[in-house]
Write a protein that binds this DNA or RNA. Sequence first.
DNA 1: CGCGATTTAGTTGTGCACAACTGAATTGTG
DNA 2: CACAATTCAGTTGTGCACAACTAAATCGCG
Lengths: 159, 159
Amino acid sequence: MTTPATDWLRLDQQICFSLHAASRAFNGVYRVILKDLGLTYPQYLVMLVLWEHGDLPVKALGEHLRLDSGTLSPLLKRLEAAGLVRRERSTRDERSVEVRLTDEGTALREHALQVPRRIAAATGCDVDEIRDLRTRLDQLTSMLDAAAQSEAAGDAGRQ
Amino acid sequence: MTTPATDWLRLDQQICFSLHAASRAFNGVYRVILKDLGLTYPQYLVMLVLWEHGDLPVKALGEHLRLDSGTLSPLLKRLEAAGLVRRERSTRDERSVEVRLTDEGTALREHALQVPRRIAAATGCDVDEIRDLRTRLDQLTSMLDAAAQSEAAGDAGRQ
DNA sequence: CGCGATTTAGTTGTGCACAACTGAATTGTG
DNA sequence: CACAATTCAGTTGTGCACAACTAAATCGCG
């Protein structure tokens, strides 16, 4: 082993930090572009899911976005206050709350169509490059999710 | 143009969302592993910078991490409350605050040496793969930062 | 049927990110 | 020297992420 543990602390910083920085940089570009629509980045993600899949209960929304009710409940209240969605308790299962697009929420989609083009321009990457990066990130995410599971649960056999 | 704007909304979701998800997944793994050290992930990043560069003013710390005082001030207070750093107003320039590692903060480094190995194991990627990903992410970040600048400033010529 | 376990949203509390602002110290320019 | 502009840390307010919890509705087993 030629690299002392000391060097690993520096390498480590670069990997996690690059991802952290890239995520925040993306967030910053979206912030600027979405300001016109009156949406934050996570709110935009919620709207994308609703535009694609139609009305959904909070649970299903959370599964698409990997977010729990602790994050979604206040976020959805803000979207409701903005007049983009309604939240209605399901009559079939009163535990569940259906998130429905209002006419205004549906109409916002037209204005959102320009967003991807502007984001793509900001990245300066071609489509294939982006697609490849996305694939790698998704692989990484599923590895990390699995690892978090085993770290959280059976630490015992960790060596 | 064979892809209608409608499809771009879906593709767009995949790119930004993958990065968002990967960042949060990394955060989750760090959360579990850093719990032993009593650090959050951003606090760990601050400690890495201090371990590598020694005592620094808040400003310089912020430049390394791309964080402003609004984020760092409360974070550093928590690190100080945990006994890992001290904050001392510079005598040469009283606007500036020097962040200094305490003995305890310096000693924590020994316990942190195991972190990178456990993270690397969690990613399941080899070093070259990680390095390549890091390079791509850094390129993406600098593109995005530059784009955020021009979006924020002279929108006029945006087409 | 009855009752414990599970599911579903929501709430609370902590911490981070960032915009906008304050106030004090310093710098630069006339 | 004086004073406007800048720099630096901190504060305030908003929003997201997540852990831990509550409360209500539903499910399922005996």
